[in-house]
Design a protein around this nucleic acid. Structure first.
Length: 528
RNA sequence: GGGCCGUUAGCUCAGAGGUAGAGCAGCGGACUUUUAAUCCGUUGGCCGCGGGUUCAAUCCCCGCACGGCCCA
């Protein structure tokens, strides 16, 4: 829209000036500094603005001080009957976006939307000053306005402000989306989130709830004596998870860095440093595809609890989720995308082995015989590499068959060591680790394990990862000597967990796409 | 990365190989208790972009861009 494209060139390569100029071409060359726009709607607005300026109206004043909000007014007077309101002499003032105008010539009903909601105001010629009323007549839907006045109830019993003054607080140049259908074009909603927030109240509600849930999580962690910390997003080596990183460059240092794929290794340094209970709620970046469940930058909470095991974290997690559900829904059941989810503890616990036998339909021999497992995976169309170890093959089958079946909250346990380079080896079976992943509604939402704090074992795991990297797995973990050295100072026995915050918010807001719970999801930049 | 679908007025959507339609918004007019206010009149379109087929393409074909869903 801004500014208009030059006329296209003909095959001769010359600017095609012989054809009749289109009727907009004059507007292409308006002097710089003015808004260049083709639409007649815009032209009308710009003319109105000129008229307001001539009339001495400040389009962008800096002294607007509303003393009330819509929510406050409804809280105090939402139940007050008309007769009692008539006795009330209190005055109120608020500011917000002009969302609707129902005009009767010498009076009008308008709707003003502030951060809390929407309220009706009555604007009448015999109440307002002449100056204010003529200003009102020039306002557009979409302008930010300030009104003050008392309260009354209309014939239809709607709580309404009777405006005794009205001011322009900020002028809108562009028209708003349609009042009834709102804005539904998904691309515009994500790219111009301000319009989405203005015209779709349920979108505001989602982000209010998101903020509330994150506050609840912080309160929960703080009440368990955790320390909230922030660790580097720019890391010389991207560790702590199995994923491809984004790369960036620091000019002054002349060095490449990676955007973190997880805060894990840094948080465990803090645990080694004696902080014992730490958590971080922040962004991670993974250079992978985009889908309804994946945004390249996403929010995760990671926390580490010393002198605890992964089984301790199961009940901890149950408690955390239950406390959120109680706060949001007042109960432990809710509907997600048409499915009833029940968070009542204790949740199902299912080993990977049992899941593969019971849900994927594998035979016991398939779980231990490499060739049989590979054959099963191929038959199922799983995406595996020739050099993949047995553990990886099994998890590929798990992803294919089991994940989507785990609707009610389920702790999947006993993960193969091959896919868990940072987890403590199980005391009962050296091929497995002390780890769980939490699945709800068919999706991984948390991942936890007893942390590997034996530096020698950690070194072996990294060496194994390097082999897989050489075999073509570019997501395999890199050797991190620095981190091993940290462990050599002695890290207390600790359990750690990561919870995907965006996915958790999806659950608690019944959102189908992760982009509906992220204000500005990553989109390809539009060309031209 | 692959498959399918979408892109028409500021917004929400119809449409059809032959001069582009509605509702809302806008503009002009009437109207002092409306609730998507109503009534009369009216402006507004490179039909995503680039090729091709055709007497004629917004429509059919090919490519591209962006988005959505599914798959990897």
């Amino acid at each position: 829209m801004f500014p208009r494209k030059r006329p296209s060139r003909g095959p001769s390569g010359q600017s095609d000036l012989t054809k009749p100029q289109n009727k907009y071409s004059q507007t292409d060359f308006r002097k710089s500094g003015e808004i260049m726009e083709d639409s007649d709607l815009l032209k009308v607005r710009l003319e109105k603005i000129a008229a307001l300026k001539t009339a001495g109206v400040d389009l962008y004043p800096n002294d607007i001080k509303p003393e009330n909000t819509t929510a406050e007014i409804f809280e105090r007077f939402g139940e007050t009957i008309a007769a009692d309101l008539a006795q009330l002499t209190d005055k109120f003032s608020l500011a917000g976006r002009l969302m609707a105008v129902r005009n009767f010539g010498k009076a009008a009903f308008i709707k003003i939307q502030d951060r809390k909601g929407l309220i009706q105001c009555y604007v009448a010629k015999n109440i307002l000053s002449e100056q204010d009323f003529s200003l009102f007549k020039k306002l557009d839907i979409g302008d930010i306005v300030y009104v003050s006045g008392g309260l009354f109830r209309t014939k239809t019993d709607e709580l309404t402000i009777e405006a005794d003054s009205i001011r322009l607080a900020s002028k809108a140049i562009h028209p708003l989306p349609e009042k009834w259908h709102g804005l539904t074009d998904i691309e515009i909603r994500y790219r111009q989130r301000h319009l989405d927030l203005i015209s779709n109240p349920q979108v505001r509600e989602i982000f209010h709830r998101r903020s509330r849930i994150i506050k609840l999580i912080r309160e929960f962690m703080d009440s368990h004596d955790f320390l909230e910390v922030e660790t580097p997003m720019m890391q010389p080596q991207a560790g702590g998870a199995v994923a491809r990183p984004f790369k960036t460059h620091h000019n002054a240092l002349g060095q490449d860095f990676y955007l973190r794929i997880a805060p894990e290794l840094y948080l465990k340094r803090l645990v080694t440093g004696g902080l014992e209970r730490v958590y971080e709620i922040n962004r991670n970046f993974r250079n992978e595809g985009i889908s309804t469940f994946h945004n390249p930058e996403f929010t995760m909470m990671e926390f580490y609890l010393s002198y605890a095991t992964y089984t301790d974290l199961m009940s901890f997690t149950e408690e955390l989720f239950a406390s959120i559900a109680r706060n949001i829904f007042n109960k432990l059941t809710f509907t997600y995308q048409g499915q009833e989810i029940d968070l009542t503890p204790p949740w199902r616990r299912l080993s990977v082995k049992d899941a593969l036998l019971q849900i994927a339909g594998m035979e016991p021999a398939d779980l231990t015989d490499y060739e049989r497992a590979v054959a099963f995976a191929h038959k199922a169309g799983c995406n595996i590499r020739p050099a993949d170890p047995l553990g990886k093959i099994l998890m590929a089958i798990f992803d294919e068959f089991v994940e989507k079946k785990l609707i009610q909250p389920t702790f999947v346990t006993d993960y193969p060591i091959a896919v868990s380079p940072l987890s403590r080896k199980s005391d009962s079976n050296p091929d497995l680790v002390d780890r769980f992943e939490l699945y709800i509604s068919g999706r991984e939402i948390a991942n936890a394990f007893s942390e590997l704090n034996d530096p020698a074992d950690q070194r072996e795991r990294f060496v194994q990862q390097l082999k897989e990297r050489e075999a073509g797995d570019d997501e395999a973990h890199e050797m991190d000597e620095d981190y091993i050295r940290v462990l050599e100072y002695g890290m207390p026995p600790t359990a750690g967990e990561g919870i995907g915050i965006d996915r958790l918010i999806m659950l608690f807001t019944d959102s189908a796409s992760i982009r509906d719970v992220i204000l500005f999801p990553l989109l390809r930049t539009k060309q031209g």
